[in-house]
Each structure stands twice: as structure tokens, then as C-alpha cells.
Nucleic acid binder design. Sequence first.
RNA 1: CGCGGGGUAGAGCAGUCUGGUAGCUCGUUUGGCUCAUAACCAAAAGGUCGUUGGUUCAAAUCCAACCCCCGCAACCA
Length: 472
Amino acid sequence: MTKKYITTAIPYMNGNPHIGHAMDYCLADVCARYLALTGNEVRFQAGTDEHGSKIAQKADELGVEVQNFVDEKAKTFKDFIAKLNVSYTDYVRTTDEWHERRVQEIWRKLKDHIYLAKYEGWYCTGCERFITDKEYAENDGICPDHLKPYEKLKEENYYLRLSDFKDDLRKAIESGEMLILPDFRKKEILKLLEESPDVSISRPVTQLKWGVPVPDDPSQVMYVWVDALSNYITVLGYPEEDISDWWPATAQFVGKDILRFHAIIWPAMLLGMGLSLPKVLVSHGMVLADGQKMSKSIGNVVDPNEVIDKHGIDAFRYYFLRHIDTFDDSDFTWTKFEDAYNNELANDLGNLVQRLATLAAKNGIKIGNDTNVSKLSPEYCELMDKFEFSKAFDYVWEKVQGLNKRIDDEKPWELAKNGETEKLEKCLTSLVLDLLQVNAELSPLIPGTSEKIASVFAGEINPPKTPLFPKN
RNA sequence: CGCGGGGUAGAGCAGUCUGGUAGCUCGUUUGGCUCAUAACCAAAAGGUCGUUGGUUCAAAUCCAACCCCCGCAACCA
């Protein structure tokens, strides 16, 4: 049994769960379920990112203790992940004591690549980041997002010497040793890598209190990314435990907006610790609303809870994994969602199960423990292995539609009328077995529905009493 | 001249590398069927393949120029 490790990006606790988080979880979950289905032992991480001054600030505004604030938020997210039916095995909160302790150990291991230096330049308190001279000039000294003038800042920070790793990193990305998907993101990262300066990885405690203290220097606190990125291995027990069974990760799922941290800083940290690089970084796109970015100011934000409540979690998973592009930005619209639900889930699949179950039950068909039903087709596996989830499910759907066509072509109801019992039995048995094979391929995508379908045909065949996908 | 992706039927996309009658899904129209969630199956209509020019017997596909959209750069996955 091969061991596989899948990770999700840990969301920052300054907002509520949104549709983008759901996208990340769904992709990783399909991957994890597929790997388990093909006989691998899978560990699957999820968690929450809870440090940083923005979170502290938010708690201040609300007049609550920071710890209480993140406890509350973290619970919201954990409930949300449960609602998505995500099959994670390991969960990390960056405020977990064991995480903080291990991050400090990681810092110690990186020490040869860390140096202290003075930064002098522009800073935006709103963005919480350093501003280059070029940016300063372009924006006439005023932050376009926060409409506040940049501040002159002089402070000491620790830096990670990225230049120690650039060559190795570039080779690893070019050769595919650390595969970045899709390919156009790989090109972007390679270019970005060349231009990347050393990264500041700490802030003075006077600026940032809510974080993990730098070991042996109480005046500095770790920059949140160092803390957050480490979660992928602290959750496995690093450095206290031997993680070589699980690391390097089989695949790490991230949004395109945070790919740069995962494709440059994170691998640099890993190389600094003498660990291997993740095998694959899967960068997915953003979910748009009518071609536009979802934003509070435009007011076009789609609440994932609303979508799930409308037609259930499997309809949600189905739409996001089949009709939202795995790698690039795509639209969510209610019309498209409803169309997919009615035409594909209810009419194609739901009705197929219903009609076939009814035919089989009426004619006394029984399916034994046929082992072939869980056999996955090579075409399907090939697409899944390449993380082409939406294409894989397109392929499966052709089979769903093919079964409907076969029923029409073979007309089992006529065979029944004509008393051709033997032929009828053969025809229906074959159809049911093929449906169960398709069902196995659907199980990573819509696990709940897949179980229901399996139970309909297990032993005595019982057609669903209520439709799998009811229409209103 | 920053780098990159893209402009193909009403919508979303494939086809472009390796030129040879323009394809898929949804939507629309019509026909068939009755096991089934007014579901299913079949057929039809619908396109100057961003613009202009070039190469070729032949261009969505190769070459050149131009126009338009988007990403890499905004709290956010």
C-alpha cells in the first residue's frame, strides 16, 4: 500500500468561509478520495491560519480577546469543512501549542540561511507590507487601496537568503521534480523566481505581537507566512517525528493568488531544512460571478452555504468540479448551476438510477458481490492522475448518457412483454453492473450520492423512494 | 515595444503543434418512445473561425501587421 499526502491551503481567519475556500477543499478532497479508491493509504491535511496583526486588529475592533476571536472563527471554518464532506485526516490550527513549538524548531534548522538586516523604506500599514520605490513613485506616495500615504519605515528584520536556493529551485521547477500545474503558472513562477529578492521573515514585536516569537530573540516575531507554510509538516509531527513516510507531499492544492508563496518561499524553506520538495503544486483559478471578481463592494459575492442549502453538498461538489475549470478562472452563475442540476444530476443520473432500479426490481434481478464493479477504467485514471478532474468527469458523464441510450436501444420493457426472460435478465444485469462501475468512478466526486446508488442495488434491489436529485 | 493567455453558432468550450468537407455540451425547433424525476432517445436549424494582407492546389490551423479582452499587481482560494 503506497502512502500519499494531500494538503489544502489554510485559510486566514480574518473573514468567513467563501466559495474560493470551498474550491480548494473540493479539489483536494476529490484527489484524496481517488487515491484512497485506488488502494493508497492517504493522509489529508486541513487547518486554519490564525496569526498576524490583521487578525489581532479585527479582534480589537470587536473588543474581544484575540484567542477567543480565532477560536470562534476556527469553529466556523471547521463546520464549513464538515459541510463540504471533506475527508481530511489531520487538522492543524496555527495557534495549536504543538504547531508553535515545531515552527520554532524549524526556524532553528534554517538558521544558516537567516540573517539580520536593517530595512529602510516605504511601508503601508493597511496592506501590512513593504512598498518598493517603483510602487511608491507610481502611486505618488499614496496607497491606492487604503488611500493613506505610505510611511517611512526603519527597522530590523530577519531575512531568509533566497539566493542560497534559487539555482536548485529553478532546476527543480524546470525539470518537473516539483511540478507546477498548470504549465502557464509554472512559467510565471520561473520568471518571478529570478526577480525575487531575499524575503523578510520577521517583524519587530512592537509591530506584530500576535504570532510565533523568534527563538532566542524576544524582540522579533515570525512573519505569518513562515508560520503558516510550516503547517504542512508540523501537522505530520515534524521535526519531532520521522515524516519520511508521508513527505514529500503527493499534491498541494493552492489558489493562484498564493502560489508564489508555495512555489518560492516554501520550497526554499524545505531545501534549507534538507527536506524534499512537494511532488506537485496544483494552482487553481478564482471563481468569478458573471465574469467579474467577487467582491463585497460590487455586491456579487455568492455565499457557498446558500448554494449548498439549495440542492445539497453533492450538487455543489459536482458543479464546482465539473463546470468550474480546474486550473483557470471560471464563472459561477445561478442559471448554470440550476441547468447542471436539472439536466445532468436529476435527468441524466437521477432518472437513470430510478428507471434502471425499477426495471431491475420488477423483473427480479439480483446482483451478487461482483468485484468488477469497482474497477476503474484506464481513461478515467489517466485523467485523474493528471489532476484533470473536470475532464475526468466529462468522460464519466458520457458513460452515464450512454447507459440511458442503451436502455432506449435495448428496450427491456419489450423483452418483458414478450416473455424473453433470459435475454431480459442478461440485458438488465449488464446494465446494472455497468452503472455500478460508473458509480465507482463518481464516488470521489459525489460520495454521498454514490453511496446511495450502491445501496439501491446491493442485495434486494430497492428503487429510491424519494428522487436522488429532486426538482421543485 | 515588460511577460504570458485568449478572441470559433445565443452561451460555455474543443479543434491550431502534425494545413485537406467546422465539432462538443447547454439552449431553440421537430419527431420517436413509455421502464423512469413532464424524465429518456433521435433529427434539424444556427458560424464571413477578431481584422487585413501573405505563403499554398488548399488556412480556424503556417507567416506578418493591426484591433479587442484577460492574467501576472489590489482584503480575499
